[in-house]
Write a protein that binds this DNA or RNA. Structure first.
Lengths: 122, 122
DNA sequence: TCAAGTAGGGCTAAATTTAGCCGTATTGGG
DNA sequence: CCCAATACGGCTAAATTTAGCCCTACTTGA
């Protein structure tokens, strides 16, 4: 692994031909779905997110929050109070994602029993 | 890497709490979006898929086709003719995926210019 | 002064996915 | 007989993502 300023230097190209690839690029990452949904519901401080998503390592949660920020889905607001605090929020672009997520999640819920069985034995 | 009968033995648990996770589980894989779309449009024989998605290695394409089959999205039809031939098709479950893909892809296309810029410099 | 809570990065290794090679078997055509 | 096309699996290594450790710096409260 080669890091440059903490960032991984990618070797294989990213494919973004169709719009779904763009969606997948933004959403893929173990905790990103949960992070976006938590922020949408108002759980928007790093500490609170760490507590709720307690199965995730802090490290990875922080990394994925940073990716969501750099992808324009979340904004990070740093308040200059003592002790300083941080809040995340959805950007306008991030808000347009919500109905898409709802629609897509509905598909999954509709077919959950079928899908769960298939995925477990794959 | 440990293989059992050619399959990878997973060590970390899969998370499927919300319907979107189910969708992501089915769709994630470098060529799966393209494969589903090709089959939907009638390019449904392994050789033809290999020729069209020529950047992909045959090996990976075959693996991802097999995963889509085991996830219940595609069916593999083996015709008992000489020389024998194979065709893939969407299952009923796979067909329900099409409008969801269209809707999600539309989101990506709508925001393509913005997203492309953000993703490139992430 | 010490512990705890705030927020966060550096680093290494494990887990997972992808790339790419080589080998199998059948059939049809030159 | 040999080559090409059909379709597919074994295997190894590279690339990428995730896990999990330790460290910094600040502030509040005991």
């Amino acid at each position: 692994m080669i890091y440059i300023c903490g960032m991984y230097e990618r070797k294989l190209p990213i494919r973004l031909e169709c719009g779904l690839h763009l969606f997948m690029e933004v959403m893929s990452g173990k905790w990103k779905i949960s992070l976006i949904w938590c922020v949408y519901e108002g759980i928007n401080r790093p500490g609170a997110l760490h507590r709720i998503l307690s199965d995730a390592s802090r490290r990875l949660l922080d990394q994925q929050l940073a990716q969501l920020v750099s992808h324009g889905i979340l904004v990070k607001k740093v308040f200059d109070v003592k002790p300083f605090k941080v809040e995340y929020g959805l950007t306008p672009l991030g808000q347009t994602l919500i109905p898409v997520i709802e629609n897509t999640a509905r598909w999954g819920e509709t077919h959950r029993s079928e899908l769960e069985t298939l995925i477990r034995n794959s």
